[in-house]
Structures are given as structure tokens and as C-alpha cells.
Write a protein that binds this DNA or RNA. Structure first.
Lengths: 159, 159
DNA sequence: ATAGTTTCTAGAGCTGACTCTAAGTCAAGC
DNA sequence: GCTTGACTTAGAGTCAGCTCTAGAAACTAT
């Protein structure tokens, strides 16, 4: 069973332009061609494509994905290097997810800030008296609620 | 207390170029200028900068961050819109984190694939007999281990 | 006062990742 | 045989998000 670039494009929701671009960048050296020079993807190629999409999702630059594919094509001598490559990006991803959790918590504190402002009808309840500058005590209050067991997610929810 | 662009750059580890670029894009309308036209950041401005960096971290495009800052400058009539904006990006971020968890699990299954190949000294243990195509049963085996309570993270770890 | 550092603006340049155009090839249906 | 549509290449164009340059003005330290 083999697939044209259009069929692969359809299956993976990637434009044929992008697939050709990946090929040009050396990400698809495993793809065969027919007599007319047209790309014929095999079933096994989807394993590679899956890895490529995974690494893209993990924000690995196209060039580095190409390096990994090169390792794959070289054979068993690169097994350790491939393992190390994946470990490196696993760690980067873990770090990123921790960072995003931080970001999410910040977003939720800001939601609580606006929720309470909405309930008061004005943001000025959060300002230092006589200014339009936020009172640092407001964030402290939020942190206190969280420390007492409230979840940031729930605190941000509008009734 | 006020801060020059260089001091802010230092504090937040953002280049002055980038700060000026953000200003040009309308992200910093709250920043004052001195008589000579130089930017003077106030303590309160760091609240805005914190929000800007948070939204950047959440992959919100610069233009949309500008829209949010515009809402902030407009006053209490936009409280609901600001709350909704944050909710929208909270949801996008939750979705993204779920996707990244998927990606992480995939990375770990591939680590296990290479770990077992390394232990065997060759990737060919995963191939269908007489081919260099991966046997789909290999992934099934991994999934079985996970279903039986093994953690993908541990399975991928080299002894 | 002067040298060195920092800042200012406008605008050019860069990078990554596509995205498309042009001109041509090939396969399928009428 | 001829049209239609999917494919090919090389190379140009686009977009976001910086990043830097040039030339002028303004602080800072001696």
C-alpha cells in the first residue's frame, strides 16, 4: 500500500506545500518516488511522520528534527544518540509544562482580580487609596486564599 | 521610584530592543516619559509587564496582547471583556497543556523503543521479520505495560 | 569641559516556518 | 486526442517577532 502526497496531506491535515518543504529540509529522506518522480509514502513512513509531528509539537526546530531523522537513517550505531536526543527534549518539555502551569496560575489570579472587580463594579477597589496603582496587598490576599486550600481555578470562576 | 529602559531590561531579562518594539506595537501606553523624551517606568508598570510576559508565555500574539492593554487603559466599562479575554486564553492554555502531555507520552514511548533496542544492540528487534519496517505489535506491547500500571516516564528510563 | 554610556527614532535586516507561483509533467476520463 | 486535475521543481513572497544600524540627543563621571 502506498500514498500520494495529497493523500498524506489529507490524512495528517498538513498541506502538500508543507510536506514538500519538510522534504526539502531533509525531514523525509525515507520517502520513495515512482518512475515519474512522484512521492510514494509507505505505511512505515507514517511512523516517521508521527515522530516528526511529535517533535514539532514539542517545539523542536525543523533543522534539529532533520538531525534526528539523519540519525535514524544511519542505523544502529546511533541508537544511543537518538535516545539522548529524545531525553533532552523530554526534559525541555517537562520544564516547559512546569512553566505553563505557572502561567496558568497567573492567568487564574488575574481572573480572580477581575472577578472581584466586576462584583464591585470597579477596578478601583484594588487600588491604593487616591491612586490608580494596584495595592500589592491584593495579590497577597489571593495567595492567602490559595494557601488556605482554595484552588486558583475555582477562585477565578464567575458565580 | 522610576526605572530606565535599561534597568527594566536588566530586571526582566528582555532586551531594550524588544521593549521598544513592544512600545511601538502599543503594548506599553502606560509608560511615562521624562522631559528629554526618555521612558520612565513606574513600579506599577511592572504589573502590566508581568501580564504581558504571562500572555507571551501563553503564546498570545503581540497584537492581541495590545488589544488587552487597550481594554485595561479604557477603564471599568471593559472589566467583563478583560475577564472574558483571560478565560479564553485560560482555556486555550489548558488545551495546549493536555496536548503537550500527549506529546510527552509519545516521547516516552519512543524512549522505551530505543531503550529496548539499545539493550538488544539493534533496532531490528522491533522490525517485522525480513523487513526494516516497525512491527505495530511493538507499540501494542508498550501500551500493555502502561495499562498494567507502569508509568511511561519510568519505562523510558535507561537502567 | 569632555569622554563615555545610554537613550531616542526611523527604518532596515534577519530568522523560521511556511505558503504560494510559474512552468512544466503525468495519469484518467470522455 | 484532449482536457482536467494532481503532481513536480525552483524560487519568490509572507508573516511574526524580534534585532540591529545610524545619527542625534542627553545623561554620568572625572
Amino acid at each position: 500500500m502506498s500514498y500520494s502526497i495529497g493523500q498524506v496531506s489529507e490524512k495528517l491535515s498538513i498541506s502538500p506545500y508543507t510536506l514538500r518543504y519538510y522534504d526539502k529540509e531533509g525531514l523525509l529522506p525515507f520517502v520513495d518516488r515512482n518512475d515519474a518522480g512522484r512521492r510514494r509514502f509507505k505505511d512505515n513512513d507514517f511512523n516517521f511522520l508521527e515522530v516528526i509531528m511529535c517533535l514539532k509539537e514539542a517545539d523542536v526546530p525543523v533543522k534539529q528534527i532533520g538531525d534526528f531523522i539523519d540519525l535514524c537513517m544511519t542505523g544502529d550505531t546511533t541508537l544511543q544518540a537518538r535516545y539522548d536526543f529524545l531525553t533532552e527534549h523530554e526534559q525541555a518539555l517537562e520544564k516547559k509544562m512546569a512553566q505553563l502551569q505557572h502561567t496558568l496560575d497567573f492567568l487564574r489570579w488575574k481572573k480572580w482580580y477581575y472577578k472581584t472587580a466586576l462584583q464591585a463594579g470597579t477596578e478601583s477597589i484594588h487600588y491604593l487609596p487616591g491612586t490608580n496603582h494596584v495595592d500589592p496587598a491584593v495579590h497577597v490576599e489571593f495567595e492567602k486564599l490559595v494557601a488556605n486550600g482554595a484552588s486558583p481555578e475555582e477562585l477565578g470562576k464567575l458565580a
